[in-house]
Structures are given as structure tokens and as C-alpha cells.
Design a protein around this nucleic acid. Structure first.
Lengths: 210, 210
DNA sequence: TAGATTGTTAATCGATTAACAATC
DNA sequence: TAGATTGTTAATCGATTAACAATC
């Protein structure tokens, strides 16, 4: 049962709030007003209050927000209290880098399996996890309750692999392949298109020095 | 001399247009109407026409757009006809993955140097490029006309390193460190916050299965 | 209580979509 | 020429900012 639909613009800002609140928390700060947060984060206090109030009244008039509480609550909104079981599909440089990055695990995103089409690396390990052949993927996904697939494979095979994974029960894709996946609407896709990002930087560099 | 300022929302869509036009071009398609592109890309024809007309009239009434021409023009708008000299700062797994990724070079983004604080990897090579100590960075940046720094270093050191790099003449940052850089407004920053992206996926997964 | 700051409504701004005259 | 489709203006929609009453 869906509450009022929250816009993706708001969702995109939540991790940034979460990060700044985490830093305030680590510094031992107990309370913060929307105005103080506004000064630090360079967004309007009004936007902060609007964004938070999409999810409930976390503050208190005359006081502001309790840092620790708000941090926890945003974490819950983001679903960080739940664990997710991930597989990596495509054990190239980028894929291996993602598996080796410790911070995802700290947030509950745990790589359970790695798959690659290249026979030469099958059987090798990345951070203790064996690289398996693609044909073992279906069984692995079903038996290990995998909900997220991280795609670091060439664009040519991504559509086909994604379709298979949906049929195996995958619920979300973290997609680094440079294509737009076509998946049923109950499946979530988060794209990381690195070359798009670099092109945007290129544009901004070019448009600046005119 | 700045023309009318183009919104970042529009800029963000350009690489996607560029990608689809490249595919059409590879298929040998010569012309495309905004409506056809709309069907393929799942955005409105109106938005496509509006976006393109920010940069000039690339189409022709009654005909549509010439695929090859539009592809070239968007490439120019994105600044892809110019070469950029990059350095990597932080030769961890992610940094090495980026250097090894061939497609950036194809678009004119060329890694010239790699720097890392860790003495154990200094002197080793990544894709033929020697990893150098940080103290050589200033001279290298100045002598090799480096304009983009790719930051794949821990958040703790990112602010300081970025400040130094600005003073050495760096014009743009591709920032993978999980902090917001504070740089002068004539310096461009493009952030890739992977954990933010993953949290967004997490939210969408959680909010879906309610 | 008085002061501070939220939660929320109203106003503004900007981005998207629709419509259509211009024109190839 | 008639048909098609752009370029562009106008209308709509949504997101951001401002304002302020509620309230701790």
C-alpha cells in the first residue's frame, strides 16, 4: 500500500542529508535547526523542512531536530536497516572494485556471489568470493535470496542478462552497463552511467571557458 | 562570454541523446523525427525539440533530424571534439578500474598520470602508467597541461587535495570521494557518489514492497 | 511566558507538455 | 502543392521558496 508518492528529486537528496547528519553525529552534535543545516549544506532551510515533512514530523518547534534521531529515521526511510543480498555480474576491473569497496557492506549491501562469462577467471576469488560461471546464476539467485544484481557487463549482453535475472526473482538492478534496461515496473533500476557523467563535466568545462 | 544559461536538467539529458543517436547511426539510420526518437527513448517529442533548440535549429521542417549531423553537433556541444588530459589521484581498486576502462579515451579523456600516497604501489604501473608519489603532482600537472583530476581517494583527504589541485591549475574534478568539494565557482565538479546511488536503489526497493 | 523553530499553506519560479504557425 | 515536422509560443504542471500560524 503506497503512501503519497514521493518525487525522485526528494529521494535523491536524502542520502546527502544522511551523510551530513552522520558527520554532525560523529562530532557529537545533539541538535540542529533547519537553518543551521541549511548553512552547512547550501540548500534552503525551507527545502529541508519540506523534504523531511514528506515522511513525518521529525522536529520540534523551538528546538529543531535531534541529530541522532533524525539520522536513524532517514536511515530507516532509505531502507538501510534491512540487509540486501547482492550478486555481481561481470568481474572486470570495475566489478572487482565494487566488491572490494568496504562501505557498502557497512550499510547492509552484501555481495554473496560473483558471476562472469570468462572461463579464465572462473574459480578465482575476489575478496574471498569465488567467481562462478553464468550457468550457475539461476540456482544461486534462488537459493541465496538475492534481491539486487550489480551489472558491470558490456552493454551488448546487459539487456538479455537483466531479463533472465528478473525471471530468477531479482528485484533491483544497480546498472553500470551503458544501456537503459527494460524491466517490469515492479523492478527497480538505478543507473550509474559513468561516461554520461564525464560528458557532463566536459560540457561544463567547455561552456565555462567561452 | 556566456550565452543564455542552459539548465543542468537539459545538460544531463544530452549524453543520452548522444548515445541513442550513435546507435541509430551505427544501424545506418539517416533521419529521425522527434516523434520517432520519443518512441525509442521514452521522453516526449516536445522535450526533445525544446532541449535541442536550446543550442540551435538542427532539424528541418517536414523532414526531421539528420542522424549523423545531429550526433556530431551534440558531440561538439558536449565538448567531445577536444582532448582532455587527466590525472588519477588515488590508485585503489576503483581508480585502477577507471584507468583501465577504454571508452573514456575513445571520447578524448586521456589519463596522463597516476598519483598515490601509498609508497608500496608507487613505481608500479597501471595500464602502462607509472604510479607516482603525491609530491610530484604539482610539477606534473603544470608541465602536462592537465585539466581534469579524477579523485578516488578517501573523503578525509579529498578537500585538501582538491584545494592544492586548484592552485596547480586544475579546471575540473570528477569526484568519487564521498564529500562535497568546496572550490571556486570557475572550477567544475562532477560528483559520482556511489553509495548515494545505492541508497536510492534501496529506498525504491523498500518503498515498492509496502 | 517569550523566543525559537517547526510544520504547512501560499506564492513564485522553472521545467515540461501542448498547441500551432512557420516552412521545408 | 499537400503533408510532415520543426521551432517556438502559450498553458500546465511540479518543485522550490517564502511566509506565518502553530507549538514546543
Amino acid at each position: 500500500m503506497e503512501e503519497k508518492e514521493i518525487s525522485q528529486a526528494v529521494i535523491s537528496r536524502l542520502p546527502r542529508y544522511f551523510r551530513y547528519l552522520g558527520e554532525l553525529k560523529d562530532e557529537g552534535t545533539e541538535r540542529v535547526s533547519s537553518q543551521e543545516l541549511s548553512d552547512i549544506m547550501q540548500v534552503t532551510a525551507s527545502q529541508i523542512r519540506q523534504d523531511l515533512n514528506n515522511f513525518g514530523g521529525f522536529g520540534q518547534q523551538g528546538y529543531g531536530y535531534n541529530v541522532g534521531y533524525l539520522y536513524e529515521e532517514i536511515g530507516k526511510i532509505l531502507g538501510l536497516h534491512k540487509e540486501h543480498n547482492l550478486i555481481l555480474v561481470g568481474a572486470g576491473h570495475l566489478g572487482q572494485a565494487l566488491v572490494n569497496y568496504m562501505n557498502f557492506e557497512r550499510r547492509g549491501f552484501i555481495f554473496r556471489g560473483i558471476f562472469d562469462i570468462d572461463e579464465r577467471i572462473q574459480g578465482t576469488k575476489v575478496r574471498g568470493i569465488t567467481v562462478r560461471p553464468m550457468r550457475e546464476m539461476e540456482r544461486f539467485v534462488r537459493e541465496n535470496d538475492i534481491d539486487i544484481a550489480v551489472l558491470t557487463i558490456p552493454k551488448g549482453s546487459a539487456l538479455e542478462v537483466a531479463e533472465q535475472l528478473v525471471s530468477y526473482g531479482i528485484k533491483g538492478f544497480w546498472n553500470f552497463a551503458h544501456v537503459d534496461l527494460h524491466v517490469p515496473e515492479n523492478i527497480q533500476v538505478e543507473n550509474v552511467h559513468l561516461s554520461d557523467s564525464l560528458m557532463k563535466l566536459s560540457y561544463n568545462l567547455a561552456s565555462h571557458d567561452e
